[in-house]
Design a binder for these strands. Structure first.
Length: 419
DNA sequence: TCTGGGGTCCTAGGACCC
DNA sequence: TCTGGGGTCCTAGGACCC
């Protein structure tokens, strides 16, 4: 059996852990730059705030319902996520961390366990130790575990937050209940096409023939179908090493000069380098992109990206910044109002097992240098040591007007208890 | 005025090889 | 008139996820 454990309204729940006065009240969390709604408490969903809603369009609704608005506090969410995952990892030796608020556990050899009780135990411990509410779905395949999780979340009282699909009868009932567009792996495009041929529920989808599904949705769709039928097709993916790493941002205003963009690209490249070093990888290629604001139909639009194959694998900030700058020079065009840019590194090698190159190679002196920089930044705070090409005056800043304290990751922000 | 960020996997088609 | 067959690698782009 697989268990899918999912934190309920995760970011909103994290904010609420340290603000119990907000229990029962609508909460939303905004994306970077306080742009869009990226998380909502149940109360916020109930007053009709959709996922992805632009904050400025919903200001009035927020006021009407006294919605508590938070800027994204990823330091807090990341730390809370680690705590939840640490607790859950005790419940099975095999775990896949699927996202910041979700993980799969493989329950192999648990035949003699009462899985309902086991799941309720997880819920109790996670709630008691972290304050985060979770829902659990258990079933013989990953996709069905997703379905079961949805039922647990939708009917918390009837299920105690744990739902198990362990019989043909339950499987069919669940699939007839689930709309096809709500199936994990069926997005907007596929559901549009499926709906057009009369496929409305997950059950309808499982009644299609294999050839047809494969033709329409490729091998991915076919695997999905089999998993829904109860034939285990997807297994845990336990590798923690990322295959690409990105740092991208929208700007708070439009940038028009090369210098402004170059500073951003340098900072993004250096951030990618840091993340690479954290997982002990070097990258062999890098992409830089810049684009104007697509929402502004009144302004001339420009959007380009460029992929650069590096002459040698590296994770040195200095080298990656150099290559990223060269890439930017190739795509930058004067006369546009840029709104967003980013650097993505990909094609990794393990840092301790690098292919030697004949003519060019990375500067080996950078290895201890980068280690020292990482250590100092860990000790004295992020970005204490920067490259001179990054903005040392820190003029650039994200809009974060409603940022909550870093309760669990900064000693200065730790909560005070008045007895 | 304002509209996020970070990932994964798969496929088709081009370029190239012998 | 007629123009092989079997591969690999790379890239762009689509679709999806949270």
């Amino acid at each position: 059996m697989f268990a899918l454990i999912d934190c309920n309204n995760f970011y909103a729940s994290c904010e609420r852990v340290f603000r119990p006065d907000l229990n029962g009240r609508p909460i939303v969390v905004l994306s970077n730059n306080d742009g869009c709604v990226i998380a909502r408490s149940n109360e916020a969903k109930a007053v009709g705030i959709p996922m992805g809603a632009p904050a400025f369009e919903y200001e009035k609704l927020f006021q009407e319902h006294d919605v508590q608005v938070f800027s994204a506090n990823f330091a807090l969410y990341g730390d809370m996520s680690n705590r939840v995952i640490t607790i859950l990892s005790d419940y099975s030796p095999e775990m896949e961390i699927y996202s910041i608020d979700e993980c799969f556990l493989k329950l192999k050899g648990f035949d003699l366990f009462n899985l309902q009780t086991y799941g309720e135990g997880m819920r109790y411990k996670v709630s008691k130790w972290t304050g985060i509410p979770i829902s659990i779905g258990i079933s013989p395949t990953k996709v069905l575990a997703k379905v079961a999780n949805r039922i647990a979340k939708k009917y918390p009282n009837e299920t105690q937050g744990v739902y198990i699909i362990d019989s043909e009868e339950k499987r069919v009932k669940a699939l007839k209940w689930l709309k096809v567009e709500d199936v994990w792996g069926i997005g907007r495009q596929h559901s549009k096409r499926l709906s057009a041929i009369g496929v409305k529920t997950a059950f309808d989808f499982t009644q299609l023939n294999d050839e047809f599904v494969k033709k329409q949705m490729a091998i991915v769709g076919l695997r999905l179908k089999h998993d829904l039928q109860g034939i285990p097709t997807l297994d845990l993916e336990e590798t923690q090493i990322k295959k690409s790493i990105a740092t991208t941002r929208s700007f708070e205003t439009n940038y028009t000069t090369y210098e402004q963009l170059a500073e951003r690209i340098n900072t993004f490249a250096s951030s990618c380098a840091e993340k690479l070093r954290k997982q002990n990888s070097c990258c062999n290629s890098l992409m830089v992109f810049i684009h104007t604001n697509g929402h502004r139909k009144d302004l001339p639009q420009y959007s380009r990206n460029i992929v650069v194959k590096l002459p040698f694998p590296t994770s040195s900030s200095i080298e990656l910044v150099k290559f990223a700058t060269q890439a930017l020079q190739k795509i930058f065009k004067q006369g546009y109002a840029y709104k967003k840019a980013g650097v993505i590194v990909q094609d990794f090698s393990q840092a301790d097992n690098l292919q030697q190159t004949l003519f060019e190679s990375r500067d080996k002196r950078h290895i201890p240098l980068m280690q020292t920089i990482d250590k100092l930044n860990l000790l004295f705070g992020q970005q204490k040591i920067r490259l001179a090409s990054q903005d040392t005056k820190r003029v650039w800043k994200m809009k974060q007007q409603k940022l909550s304290p870093h309760y669990t990751t900064n000693l200065n922000d730790i909560i005070t208890i008045n007895l």
